[in-house]
Amino acid sequence: MEDRNAETARLRQPWRRRLKRLNFSELIMPGFILVYSSIIALIEPRFLSWGNLDNLAGQIAPLLVMSVGQAFTIISGGLDLSMAAVMSLSGVVGILLVPLVGPWGAICVMAVFGLLVGLVTGYIIAYQKTSPFIVTLGMASVATAIALILAHGVPIYTVPPELTAAIGFGHFLGLPVSFEIAIAMLLLGAFLLRRTVFGRYVYAIGSNKSATLRSGVNVSLYTMLVYGFAGFSTGVASIVLTSWVGAAQPVAEPDMTLKSIAAAVLGGIALNGGSGGMVHVLYGCIVLGALSNSLTLVGVSSFYQILAVGIVIIVAVMLDRVRRREIF
């Protein structure tokens, strides 16, 4: 009895609780990143140069922001295939409104517009009892079409230089501002997931939707809010991307939606929902970004790059199964 009390007392200390929870499986992805980076650094020492890490941080920022929102939809048991399209549309709308609202107003427009589109998508999914796959696929077409109509099909190059200078090129405390925005989004995501009722319900809905419903949780409302947050993250991603590339493109980075799903799953978020956290999003984005960057530095042909990315995703999913003790 005394032993049990001592153990309970020990576990009351948060760092001990975390240490106990930390097991080998949680070290797979950071271990992979460390080993991979070391190997690449041996082949091409410039990979770990400050200049390249700065470059890498800027490159993964839009994906990281988008993956935060995507992670919420996946943890809740859904997914959002419209994110890249909504990101393009938010960017186009924001830049078109610059003459009316100014450059900083345009940033707010992009974020709020993304949020509103996300809420509409969430409303259709949650209250009309429709499949997220089909609704977000449809929303992707709608958003792309509206972006093409508004931009007359071509990129808009009138991004205010203040935005490009501050967010696209800017550095604060030695780090790219775009990456700092991405980290802020990641922290916001972690806070919402771990420290709020909303976050607990997101996990509950993803784990067992009908049980959550029977527990008296307003599942429809929280599902709508999940897609609202995903929309907000696409809006923020559009701010980062538009400032970074210096243009609002009606079809910007169409592959980024799938990359955001890949990043979340690769990092360790279960595709069937109910588990995972923001640290997994970070792992996934670092792996995807570092793969592309390092293979280009090493001089690997893009065909082999595509092959490498595919193999890494498959291996990561297998490791995920190992982690869950589903195989071996």
């Binding site: 990129p155 590339v245 910007a252 980075e253 280009t296 001089g299 690997v300 042909s301 893009s302 065909f303």
Partner: peptide
């Protein structure tokens, strides 16, 4: 490397 996209972000 030969790429798969013609986007500004990819080229950047």
């Amino acid at each position: 490397p030969v790429g798969g996209e013609i986007s500004i972000g990819y080229a950047l």
